[in-house]
Amino acid sequence: MRVLIAAVVALTASVAMADDLDDAHRQALAGRDSYWNCLAQEYSRDRNEGMSGEQFTALIAGACASERQNLRVSLVSYLSMQHPDVDAGDHMTTANNAIASAQKDVVTAFIRHKAASK
């Protein structure tokens, strides 16, 4: 009987952990989507027409601060749950690299669009 109870407790804990991981994954995806949507809004603003690539890069680096932080926190949380044996600093580096990649993609699109419109 004790073995059965232990098995049920272990199974329940496993299901709860899977649910927590799924929730963390959904939150990380929502954070990503929110950040990308904010960057897209910055990209499409009329005030960007006369900006140089360097000016737009600086704008994007400072834009969407709360969305960026939410993405960072939710991604680090998800990665920490998914890979608890990995150093938290490595998860932070991964999150920061994802943010840098998103910024680079938006800036690259801006520069290409600007070059094509000349």
Rank of each mutant, 00 (worst) to 15 (best):
L79I: 03
A58V: 11
E49A: 15
A16P: 02
Q82H: 08
S66Y: 11
A102L: 12
M17R: 10
I111K: 14
H91E: 00
D87K: 04
D85Y: 10
A24F: 05
S14K: 08
A16E: 09
H83L: 14
R68E: 03
A10S: 11
M81W: 04
A13C: 13
D20M: 14
L11Y: 14
S101R: 02
T12G: 09
K104P: 03
D33R: 07
A7M: 12
A61S: 14
Q82I: 03
E42T: 04
A95R: 00
V9D: 10
M17H: 11
E67M: 09
S44M: 06
E49L: 14
D90I: 00
Q41L: 10
V8Q: 10
K114D: 14
D90T: 00
D19K: 13
C38Q: 07
V106P: 02
V8A: 15
G31W: 01
Q55V: 13
D22V: 06
R26T: 05
L21E: 11
A102E: 11
S34Y: 04
I111H: 08
Y78V: 00
Q41A: 12
V9G: 07
I111Y: 12
Y43I: 04
S66C: 05
A95M: 06
A95I: 01
M92A: 03
S101K: 11
Q41R: 09
Y78H: 03
S66N: 10
I111A: 15
Q69R: 07
D105H: 12
G53R: 08
G62L: 00
G62Q: 01
L11Q: 09
Y78G: 02
I60S: 05
A102W: 09
Q69C: 04
P84N: 02
D23Y: 15
D90Y: 01
R26G: 06
Q82V: 04
A115T: 09
I5W: 13
G89L: 12
T94Q: 01
Q82E: 08
A30V: 03
F110E: 12
L59Q: 08
T93N: 11
S80M: 02
A13I: 09
T57D: 14
Y35L: 05
F56G: 04
R112D: 13
L29W: 08
A13F: 15
L71Q: 00
A65G: 09
N37T: 06
V15R: 06
E54K: 11
V106M: 14
S101N: 12
A13K: 06
N48D: 10
R68C: 03
L79F: 06
R47T: 04
A63M: 11
C38T: 05
A58E: 12
V107I: 15
T93F: 15
A24G: 06
A30I: 04
Y78T: 00
L4H: 10
A61I: 02
A65I: 07
Q55Y: 12
G50D: 10
